[in-house]
Design a protein around this nucleic acid. Structure first.
Lengths: 214, 214
DNA sequence: GCCGAGGGTGAGCGGGCGCTTAGGGCGCTC
DNA sequence: GAGCGCCCTAAGCGCCCGCTCACCCTCGGC
């Protein structure tokens, strides 16, 4: 595989943009708690406790518990979109770019599983406005993947009957990694990424799947 | 497609086994509420209200709110397992049986989306004992699909490097349908089932995919 | 040495939660 | 038609939730 992140985790911690330090610690604590128990089952006291602070400290940096989820969700989606865009804009054939996109997207969902879980499964806990903003980001995620698949169909590399349906299935497959992946399981994020890139190339009927496995 | 359910919904309502009538109405109300808002965000008052009863009525038929989830989860998993087993034990080649299994499993996840959502995504809300029982059922689900894939590899119909990993991916793809499927969207459960059966046959490198599309 | 601002705390508010209890109505049995 | 058992309700208990408020400590500027 190519481009960015080679390591197992996939990426640098993306929370460095959150300041000040106390706000970041609270946000990281919230990600862990939301991922473990879900948004609704997590209490503000639990989040503050994990960050080593009193319950009231949370409200100095965030207006509500929902604002925390919103910030996490937006940053996470931007990160995911960035990963796909890097792959989509890369050089190489559609086959290579799709393999790259899937393997890095999957590596992120496996390696940063706690973040990905919150990002992908807690969307419904947001209010209408925040939800609409995140849904717009998701449509751009969909468009990136669909773009690569359309390129491959146009160039004759892929054989796909239902482009939108296949796009949906490919994204769905990658996203669900966040549900089942277990750090202590038998597979590393890199291995799952490689397996999934191969499976997706089969799904789109890529003629020359072997070439993308550098 | 073959075997059971031809209609859009996929199956008869599986709750007929729950008696008495009031207990069933409560259970159906709970499925709807859990699917819409999640287990933790659903209140016992909401469940009772949907069933047209007072909050206290719930506790005549169920010991706790968790027992409701447990009953829903067990019945739902048994239903899902039954669908896969019917397909796995059918006659015909591994290719045909895999296509049948995937299309009926997907039809269930799309058509009975509310039930499937609760079954697939609220597992973590169960206590350790109930959770262990459900996890055992899931292993049997996994074994059914793996069995078909192993048959296809043995007979030379399929070309699969990592049988366990591919099994996981196939199940993951089907299960995630419950997350994104929308009854009011452009696709019927039957259409998604057919699309997914085709995609899965490609994933396992089925030599004669066309033959399974009757 | 004093001051103000900003990050932090302890205590606690109003409210909604899961669940319990005392009792009421209705239909069956004889 | 008295007695009994089964469903169900009204009321409410104790608890913990998200969030607020009054106050404190620390630190840079002068």
């Amino acid at each position: 595989m190519s481009t960015a992140a080679e390591t197992t985790g996939g990426d640098i911690e993306p929370w460095e943009e959150v300041t000040p330090d106390a706000a970041r610690r609270l946000l990281v604590a919230a990600v862990e708690a939301f991922a473990e128990r879900g948004y609704h089952a997590t209490t503000t006291r639990d989040i503050a406790g994990r960050a080593g602070m009193s319950p009231a400290a949370l409200y100095i940096h965030y207006k509500t518990k929902e604002e925390l989820l919103h910030r996490i969700s937006r940053i996470g989606h931007e990160r995911a979109l960035g990963i796909l865009r890097t792959a989509a804009e890369g050089e190489g054939s559609a086959t290579e770019r799709l393999a790259d996109a899937v393997s890095s997207f999957v590596r992120w969902h496996a390696g940063r599983r706690t973040t990905a879980r919150v990002v992908q499964y807690e969307l419904d806990a947001l209010g209408p406005d925040a939800r609409a903003e995140i849904v717009a980001l998701r449509r751009r995620v969909d468009a990136e993947v669909r773009g690569i698949i359309e390129d491959g169909v146009a160039s004759g590399e892929f054989d796909v009957l239902d482009v939108q349906g296949t796009t949906l299935a490919v994204l769905s497959l990658c996203i669900d990694v966040a549900r089942w992946f277990n750090i202590e399981g038998p597979r590393t994020p890199d291995e799952v990424g490689a397996l999934y890139a191969d499976l997706v190339l089969r799904m789109v009927g890529a003629k020359d799947a072997g070439a993308a496995r550098k």
